[in-house]
Design a protein around this nucleic acid. Structure first.
Lengths: 145, 145
DNA sequence: TATCGATGTATCTACGTCTATGTAACCTCC
DNA sequence: GGAGGTTACATAGACGTAGATACATCGATA
């Protein structure tokens, strides 16, 4: 049972949240940087590998970024030979994305790196606390529509 | 008492966290946008109003951004007449920041806007949940040094 | 007091991000 | 089968951010 504590104001919670968010971002960037990739780029490649072929807008939705952002990032990843664009035969407006062989190999590495980074990060929490945290996070993001 | 639930992986927690973080950012940007300011700019002005006179690096630390970022943002806020820079007499390397009269008035408005936005955002949580959340957040950011 | 490392700020570069907009292709309905 | 609205993607502009670095100043010490 949680011990008694002085009540916190919503603004304090917000402050603490954004501070922690920055810690997470930095942690993932550092760990994935050791694999030679940034967090957003790795997220895209991993997601394409997981669900290819996938349309651009679907991909953006899956990883939680705006479509325009995804378009730009994918462009760079195609230039770097990790992803392939292909116009859909069914709907010539849409673009189907797939990983190249190189992209697939890196996606595996980066998935492992991401998971390890997450384990490190949440290591100080008990499974119970992780479950509680996810509960709260889902409540918040569900409300923020 | 929390009910039993399937255990979550650290990577899932990380995903949920970053998704929620985006919801928060968007919410604050929207609410503060109604006051004609972005979240980072308002945070700076409010913090200066709260603890003036304050050095640039101190300010950056207080709001949790990099010193270079603070320098650029402060530059714009000075141009817009909300803050004043003054070289310290004690240490001529350092810059003391203060709000102008206009900045002070806006800081009050923005503080209220920020607090209201935070209340809205965390409204779905019980005080108990807020306390638990802050507990967990502090554990995480303390570990992430 | 001359030097050298430490500190405070500004600036540069690169990145990820969003919003708004443009363009092409699709689909519906008359 | 064409018109008009809708959808998919690309592009442009603005912003906030970090990191590295340059520069001025400080402080300790030889």
């Amino acid at each position: 049972m949680p011990h008694a504590r002085k009540s916190v104001t919503p603004a304090q919670v917000a402050d603490e949240f954004s501070r922690t968010a920055k810690v997470l971002v930095r942690h993932f960037n550092e760990r994935l940087g050791e694999h030679g990739v940034s967090t957003p780029r790795s997220r895209l490649v991993v997601e394409v590998a997981r669900s290819q072929p996938v349309r651009l807008t679907e991909l953006a939705l899956a990883v939680g970024i705006a479509q325009g952002t995804a378009s730009t990032l994918v462009d760079a990843l195609v230039r770097d030979g990790l992803l392939e664009r292909q116009t859909s035969a069914d709907d010539r407006r849409s673009v189907l994305l797939r990983v190249t062989a190189q992209g697939a190999a890196l996606a595996q590495d980066w998935t492992a790196g991401y998971e390890r980074a997450a384990e490190e990060l949440f290591e100080p929490l008990t499974p119970q606390q992780m479950a509680t945290l996810v509960d709260i996070l889902r409540t918040l993001s569900a409300a923020g529509d």
